[in-house]
Amino acid sequence: MKIKFMLNDRSQTWHTEPGESLLDLLRRHHVVSVKKGCDGSTCGVCTVLMNQKPVLACTVLAVRCAGEHIHTVEGLADEVEKISEAFGIEGADQCGFCNPGIALALYALKAEHPEADAAEIKQYLEGHLCRCSGYQSQVKAALRYLGEAS
């Protein structure tokens, strides 16, 4: 079947199969910022924005995206660059596999609650597993990004 949806502010009409996840659909179309890290909704690396809210693309059926707005880091480059700068300053970059998902979460957090403190950031990012960083540098980077944004 074909679905029509907005991906990064551009209309796309893509073929999908019943049961295909948004994650598989996006990766099949080479939207590779969206990663696959687990077998279902436990790691956070496939996070995308659906109508500006973070969702796990592995647990969203592609057909459910018909008519919806999906954003990935590819479509939010200006803001993601700011997040990346904050990560760079705090030394929060390591393997990077979780970074696009975290960037989208921080983008959403900024819209929802730009005054978030460290504890609130930790809570907001808890679903984003990272095995490299020990997390503290990510929180510092998030505070820096939110601080500069506000």
């Binding site: 080479h30 939207v31 590779v32 910022s33 969206v34 990935t72 880091v73 590819e74 480059a77 993601v80 660059e81 997040i83 990346s84 700068e85 990560f87 760079g88 300053i89 030394g91 970059d93 990077g96 970074n99 696009p100 960037a103």
Partner: peptide, 14 residues
């Protein structure tokens, strides 16, 4: 800053 952090976060194929 790490030489590759930005490209990775921007989701470039890597």
């Amino acid at each position: 800053p790490s030489v590759d952090g930005k490209g990775i976060m921007l989701g470039r194929p890597a």
